[in-house]
Nucleic acid binder design. Structure first.
Length: 713
DNA sequence: AGGTTAAATCTTTTT
DNA sequence: GATTTAACCT
C-alpha cells in the first residue's frame, strides 16, 4: 500500500465481489491494477487463478514486469482480449471446429478474401466495395451473428441479402483455410463460452479474479466474454474512464462501463479523480475542453501540482513551418540538457507524420514512429510471412497463393487454376495438390516448377521446430527472397532487405523470450501487434504517433499538430456516427492528458492534403480552451507559404523526369561503377532512387541522397 | 508470364 | 502524395 491514496488503496484491497474503478486520466490507474493483481496473488489467490486483460501487448508486458518485480505473478495470465482468445481457441480448437495451428488473418488478408467472396456471390466489386462489406461482416461478428443467423435476421432488403451471401462465402473460405480474422477470435470465444457449458464452467471456475483495463473500449463480444468468465466467482474488476472512450467506430460500446453498476448491483465503485501526471495548466485546459461534451457524467479532475508552464497554442503559416518550429523547440530543449525520449508528437491521422518526420530528420533529431501494424503490412514482410504461414498451416491458401510465385517462378494464373481445379476435383487442399504436382495431368512445363516449389516447402517443413529464427532465415535464403530483395534494393541502403533482417531479429528475440515457443505462436504474436508495441522506451528518441496510439502513455513534453477543422475533429468521424464530435473531443482530451510538463497545440493555415495545398480553418476545439490561461504564438509570414508546396515527385511527369538533372536515358558516371545509362527514376519508401544500367554490372538502384553521379553530355 | 507505364482511387483512427 | 489497378508491351 506504499504511496497509495486512500481511494487507490481501497481499490487494491477490495478482493471479493465486483469492482468498478472509474479512473480519470493520470490518476494512477496502472499503478492500482498492478498493485491489486499483486495483492490478490499475495493474499487470496494463486497467480494462475488471476486473469488481467490489457488493451495492448505493451501494457501487458509492462504489467507483467512490475508484478514480477513485486515478487509474484510468474504464472498470472496477462494479455489482451485478442491474445487471450487466440490462446483459448488453440486449446479448445477441436470444440470450435478449428485446428490448433490456425492462421490469424490481418485486415488486408481479410479484405482480399471478402473480395473473392463478392465475386463468388456473383456480385460486382464496383457496386459492393470490399471495404464496406468487410465492415458490415465485422459488425455482424461483433454481435456474434453467424452467416446463417445474419441471413435470417438481417437480410430483409437487397443490400442485406447481398451482405448475407458474401458473409457466408467469406466465412466458409476462412474456415476452409483454417483461419480466423480479428473478429472471429472474439466471436468464436464468446460463442464457445455460451454454447459449451463444460468449457464455460471450467474457465469461469479457473479464473477466480478478473481484471479488465480500458473497459470503456470493450465491444459487445468482449463484454460477453468478460461476463461469462466472471460468472462463477463474480470477482470482476473493471477499470476505465468514459472520457477516454475513443473506439466507438470499432464497435466499442460505452454503455458497457456505464451499465456496470446495473449489471452487478453489489458492485463497489471507486472513483480516482486526483491527477498525478499533468501540471495544473495542462489539466485545466484538458478539463475545460472535455466539459464541452454534453453526454457526460460530471467529473472533476484535480491536482496538487503547481500550475507550471502555460499550454501553448501555435498558429503557423504552413504545415512545414509548423513542423520546423516544433523541431526547433525540440532542438532547443535538447541543447538545454533535455532528452529526446521525453518528447512526443501526436496527430489525428498517420499522413501527418510525414512533415514532422522530415523536419526532425533535417535537424538530426532521433525519432521513432509508433507503427507496428504498418511494418507487418509491408510487401517484403508479407512475402516472407506467407512462407512461414504456409509452413505452419498448410490449409492457408492465401499464403500459398502469394508464396508460390514470389519471387517469380514462372507459375502464373493458368497454372494455379489447374492446380486449384485438381484440388477441387479430388477434394484436397491446394497445398496437397501442389505436393502432388507430379500426378496433375493438366500441367505441362509448369509441373517441374510447381514440383520444385513443393520440394522447397517440404524442406522447410522438415526443419526443427526451434529456433524460429532459423526457420525464418531458411525461408529467405532458400526461397530466393533474399536474393530478390538484394537485387532490387538500393546500393547504399536497402529498406526491403533491412526490414526482412529486422524480422529475422524479431524471431531471434522471440526465441530468447520463449524457449518453448513455436512458429505458430510467433506468427500469432506478430498478427496481434499494435502500434504501441513497437515503441522502444529505451531508445531515447522523439516518439511520433496517432492520438489513438497515445492512449495509456505519458510524456513530459507533448506536441499535438494539425488542430484544424476537419482534421481534429476529423470530418468523416464527425459525420459518420452520432456523437462523432464528442468522440473526437475525447480523442483530443486523451492526447492533452498524456502531457506531464509542457503541452503545445498547433495548427497550420495551409496544409497539403492528398497532393493539394489547401487553406484550413482553426479547429473549433481550440476555442473551447480557457483563453486567459493559454499562451498564443504565431508563425505567420506569407512568404513562408510557398514551403507548403514543397514535395517530392512520384509519378514521372515531364517536369519531374528532370529532377536533379536526371531523366530516363541520360548518361551518367558513377564513382565506382563508371559509365551507365539511367533506366528510370522512382520513389520508394519516401526516398528517391535512380536505377542505372551499367555495361558490365547490369542494373543497380541508388538512393539519390547517398550517391554522387555526374551527368555526361 | 512478367514487367512497365498510365490511370484510377484514395485515408480516419486499429486489435 | 501514395498506392492500387488496368492496359499495354515484350
Amino acid at each position: 500500500m506504499d504511496g497509495l491514496t486512500d481511494a487507490q488503496a481501497e481499490a487494491v484491497q477490495h478482493t471479493d465481489g465486483p469492482l468498478l474503478v472509474l479512473a480519470g486520466a493520470g490518476s494512477g490507474k496502472t499503478r492500482v491494477i498492478t498493485r491489486r493483481a499483486a495483492y490478490l496473488a499475495r493474499m487470496v489467490a494463486r497467480a494462475d487463478e488471476i486473469l488481467a486483460i490489457t488493451f495492448t501487448n505493451k501494457a501487458a508486458g509492462e504489467m507483467r514486469e512490475r508484478i514480477t518485480a513485486l515478487g509474484v505473478g510468474r504464472h498470472m495470465w496477462i494479455c489482451t482480449f485478442h491474445a487471450l482468445c487466440a490462446r483459448l481457441l488453440r486449446t479448445y480448437a477441436a470444440e470450435v471446429g478449428l485446428q490448433g495451428n490456425f492462421t490469424i488473418f490481418d485486415q488486408a488478408d481479410s479484405r482480399a478474401l471478402v473480395k473473392q467472396a463478392i465475386s463468388k456471390s456473383d456480385l460486382n466489386a464496383d457496386n459492393w466495395s470490399p471495404r464496406a462489406m468487410q465492415e458490415r461482416i465485422s459488425q455482424a461478428k461483433q454481435n456474434l451473428k453467424t452467416p446463417s443467423e445474419y441471413a435470417s435476421t438481417e437480410a430483409y432488403d437487397f443490400s442485406g441479402k447481398a451482405v448475407a451471401k458474401i458473409y457466408e462465402h467469406y466465412q466458409s473460405m476462412l474456415e476452409d483455410q483454417n483461419a480466423c480474422d480479428f473478429d472471429d477470435l472474439l466471436m468464436r470465444t464468446a460463442r464457445l463460452l455460451e454454447d459449451n457449458k463444460g468449457v464455460r464452467l471450467a474457465l469461469s471456475d479457473r479464473f477466480r479474479y478478473l481484471l479488465i483495463d480500458e473497459y470503456q473500449d470493450t465491444n459487445h463480444a468482449q463484454y460477453l466474454i468478460a461476463t461469462h468468465l466472471a460468472r462463477a466467482h463474480r470477482n470482476l474488476c473493471a477499470t476505465g474512464d468514459p472520457d477516454q472512450s475513443i473506439y466507438a467506430w470499432r464497435g466499442a460500446d460505452l454503455q458497457n462501463i456505464l451499465d456496470f453498476e446495473a449489471d452487478y448491483e453489489d458492485a463497489k465503485v471507486v472513483r480516482l479523480e486526483q491527477n498525478f501526471r499533468s501540471s495544473g495548466a495542462i489539466l485545466s485546459a484538458a478539463s475545460e475542453l472535455i466539459s464541452h461534451n454534453e453526454h457526460r457524467k460530471h467529473k472533476k479532475l484535480w491536482t496538487t501540482d503547481e500550475f507550471g508552464a502555460s499550454v501553448e497554442l501555435w498558429t503557423c503559416e504552413s504545415a512545414n513551418i509548423e513542423a520546423e518550429k516544433i523541431a526547433e523547440a525540440i532542438e532547443q530543449y535538447i541543447s538545454e540538457g533535455g532528452q529526446p525520449g521525453d518528447v512526443a508528437i501526436f496527430y489525428r491521422i498517420n499522413a501527418l507524420s510525414r512533415v514532422a518526420e522530415d523536419a526532425l530528420r533535417r535537424k538530426h533529431i532521433p525519432y521513432q514512429i509508433a507503427r507496428g501494424v504498418e511494418f507487418y503490412a509491408r510487401k517484403e514482410i508479407k512475402d516472407t510471412l506467407s512462407y512461414l504461414r504456409l509452413i505452419s498451416n498448410p490449409a492457408d491458401e492465401t499464403a500459398l497463393m502469394r508464396a508460390i510465385n514470389t519471387p517469380t517462378r514462372g507459375i502464373g494464373k493458368v497454372t494455379l487454376e489447374r492446380v486449384a481445379d485438381y484440388a477441387r476435383v479430388n477434394g484436397i487442399t491446394v497445398d496437397a495438390a501442389v505436393q502432388a504436382a507430379e500426378t496433375i495431368s493438366t500441367l505441362k512445363t509448369a509441373r517441374k516448377k510447381v514440383g520444385a516449389f513443393a520440394e522447397l516447402i517440404r524442406g522447410l517443413r522438415d526443419l526443427p521446430e526451434r529456433p524460429v529464427k532459423r526457420i525464418v532465415q531458411a525461408v529467405i535464403e532458400r526461397s530466393g527472397l533474399e536474393a530478390e530483395f538484394n537485387k532490387q534494393g538500393g546500393e547504399i541502403e536497402n529498406d526491403a532487405l533491412d526490414n526482412v533482417y529486422e524480422l529475422v531479429n524479431a524471431a531471434g528475440d522471440y526465441d530468447l523470450e520463449n524457449p518453448e515457443g513455436s512458429l505458430t505462436e510467433w506468427l500469432q504474436q506478430i498478427s496481434l501487434v499494435s502500434d504501441q508495441d513497437m515503441i522502444d522506451d529505451e531508445r531515447g528518441a522523439v516518439t511520433l504517433m496517432t492520438l489513438h496510439a497515445a492512449k495509456g502513455l505519458e510524456f513530459p513534453i507533448v506536441f499535438m499538430i494539425g488542430l484544424e477543422e476537419g482534421m481534429l475533429p476529423h470530418q468523416r468521424a464527425a459525420e459518420d456516427r452520432l456523437g462523432g464530435i464528442e468522440e473526437e473531443r475525447r480523442l483530443a482530451f486523451v492526447g492533452m492528458t498524456r502531457a506531464m510538463k509542457r503541452l503545445t497545440l498547433s495548427w497550420a493555415m495551409y496544409r497539403m492534403v492528398r497532393g493539394v495545398t489547401e487553406r484550413t480553418l482553426m479547429s473549433h476545439f481550440l476555442g473551447q480552451l480557457p483563453e486567459d490561461e493559454i499562451v498564443t504564438r504565431e508563425f505567420v509570414d506569407e512568404k513562408d507559404r510557398s514551403l507548403a508546396h514543397l514535395g517530392r515527385f512520384n509519378q514521372m511527369d515531364i517536369e519531374s523526369q528532370y529532377v536533379d538533372g536526371f531523366y530516363p536515358g541520360c548518361r551518367v558516371r558513377h564513382e565506382d561503377y563508371g559509365e551507365g545509362e539511367v533506366v528510370r527514376l522512382e520513389t520508394r519508401m519516401r526516398k528517391q532512387y535512380v536505377r542505372i544500367r551499367f555495361r558490365e554490372d547490369g542494373e543497380r538502384s541508388f538512393a539519390l541522397e547517398h550517391v554522387s553521379l555526374y551527368v555526361i553530355d
